[in-house]
Design a protein around this nucleic acid. Structure first.
Lengths: 164, 164
DNA sequence: CATTTTTATATGAAAATGAATACAACTACT
DNA sequence: AGTAGTTGTATTCATTTTCATATAAAAATG
């Protein structure tokens, strides 16, 4: 029996059975494309939602990263938001001018700029975080808890693997 | 016993056991971030590699998409490359001027522009595809065939799920 | 230490991007 | 057919991004 589709079955325990097929086109079998595409699709709606409220997705990324770990250096923050350094530099200055962030000189290293969230930024990010969680819930509505954890665990593993 | 890491074990048959932990920071438990981050990490090196050869990553994306299915409409191509329409319009004109592509009027729909790869484009994409495959092989070197298929199958499933 | 190298951030000019819009061609409806 | 709405692409212009580089501080080196 020849399969020309891939079946992926996840049971309650996270066990997975796949029926493989060799008949994918290049991009549908190319990891980088699958990641780019799924990343795009997952974020698309939520980004529009943010923009409809007058915020840029860059602001969201920056604030979300800081919400986990406030007081990061520009470089540290940049490792999380995945921008180019000049891009982040300018964004952070702009966000400071809008009272969402504060930039402080780092005492330990006078070159470094430490970035903290302001009260206004905190209010905003609390709101956006709640929206993000709600959106993710919708995106993963058809996935069982185990399937969600499996997907995330595989991605985390990939990230760790690629970062070393 | 309290776990503060997630263990993901994939056996030869693609069976997966995960030990879950509740102690992730927001972004490390946020699907959109995990996808964006892994996407970025997977493509990073390869994109530099392309740029070092004097090509833009946009050219790579466009040609790779056309390599699967030549003669796409601008809109169809855009669904694959995930750009904004004006961005792709301009890129395609530029690439035509560099003799990598050809733009034809679609007979069935005179508004539409069909885009095909030129011989020069074919030579280039053949080279880049080989490099891309080699790069992916390196990226996934530590993954068994089954693990690779599992990862890709899950992403394909997510893509299909989000596209409906 | 003085010197070289590396690291952290900023900046300016140039390029890329995208929102808004225009326009032409197609579709659906009456 | 005629009209209204939709779709496919191009273009404009304001904004954003980035390359290249500058600068200052740290680290490494001899």
């Amino acid at each position: 029996m020849k399969m020309n589709t891939t079946t992926l079955i996840c049971n309650k325990k996270g066990t997975v059975i796949i029926n493989m097929s060799k008949s994918f086109s290049f991009i549908d079998d190319y990891l980088a494309y699958l990641l780019a595409r799924s990343s795009h699709l997952v974020s698309e709606q939520f980004h529009r939602q943010i923009q409809d409220q007058g915020w840029s997705t860059n602001y969201w990324r920056i604030l979300a990263s800081l919400s986990d770990e406030d007081g990061l250096t520009l470089t540290q923050l940049n490792q999380r938001v995945l921008f180019k350094q000049p891009t982040l530099s300018k964004l952070v200055v702009k966000m400071e001018s809008e009272k969402l962030l504060k930039r402080h000189q780092d005492d330990a290293d006078k070159r470094a700029v430490k970035i903290t969230i302001s009260p206004k930024g905190r209010t905003l990010i609390a709101d956006l975080l709640a929206q993000a969680k709600a959106h993710e819930k919708k995106v993963l509505a058809d996935y069982s808890e185990e399937q969600q954890q499996l997907l995330k665990a595989m991605l985390r593993r990939l990230v760790v693997h690629l970062q070393d």
